[in-house]
């Protein structure tokens, strides 16, 4: 009795596998799980001790751009029908990397790049961790090199703070 049931089951499984092999439509995988619609980029997770410092920029996720915070790049290329879109984006990324590398560990905020005609204004908040002499050197160095590479006048407009704690907006 039992054996016959097992045999029946086996035959049943056998037929189903045969059907699956013969018809690819039946065998095609149907996903029934809900899609994972979770946006993670530009958001920070809350720590257990609630001691992770966030600046205002970090505290507002990307969908708050133009609502609670504004853009870091100001130019006409990112408008509709703007010219030199890719070039501007690449140049901005290059300026950001160069700034964070040159002012190593000193940049406390995002690097803000504003363009007016061919003039590039780079603004950032810098920690007063090095002597003013060094800071002046770095300022001239950055301006000179960037304007040489980008072939436009570059102006650094910095604001200094005592420590990173000054730009902290909240702890999560």
């Amino acid at each position: 009795m039992n054996i016959s049931i097992i045999k029946l089951l086996q035959s049943g499984f056998g037929t189903s596998s045969v059907i699956a092999q013969c018809s690819p439509i039946l065998a095609s995988q149907l996903h029934t799980s809900a899609p994972l619609c979770r946006v993670v980029s530009g958001k920070y997770r809350i720590t257990k001790k609630r001691d992770k410092p966030l600046t205002y920029e970090m505290a507002n996720p990307p969908h708050y751009i133009a609502h609670r915070k504004s853009w870091n790049s100001w130019n006409t290329s990112n408008l509709k029908d703007g010219l030199r879109r890719s070039e501007t984006a690449v140049e901005d990324e290059f300026i950001r990397r160069f700034m964070t590398g040159t002012w190593h560990g000193l940049v406390c905020s995002e690097v803000i790049i504003k363009r007016q005609f061919n003039h590039i204004r780079v603004a950032a908040i810098i920690r007063r961790a090095v002597s003013p002499t060094k800071m002046y050197f770095l300022l001239g160095y950055t301006e000179e090199l960037l304007s040489n590479w980008l072939q436009c006048p570059v102006t650094l407009e910095l604001q200094t703070v005592d420590s990173f704690k000054d730009v902290v907006f909240k702890y999560i």
């Binding site: 609502h67 915070k69 504004s70 905020s109 504003k114 603004a123 908040i125 703070v161």
Partner: peptide, 23 residues
């Protein structure tokens, strides 16, 4: 300048990147 929840004061002018961004 800056958005804060109700009852708080928005961040002041010092070390405020939002003020540096807007033309």
């Amino acid at each position: 300048q800056g958005y804060v929840s109700k009852g708080q004061a928005p961040p002041g002018k010092k070390a405020n990147a939002e003020l540096m961004k807007i033309p």
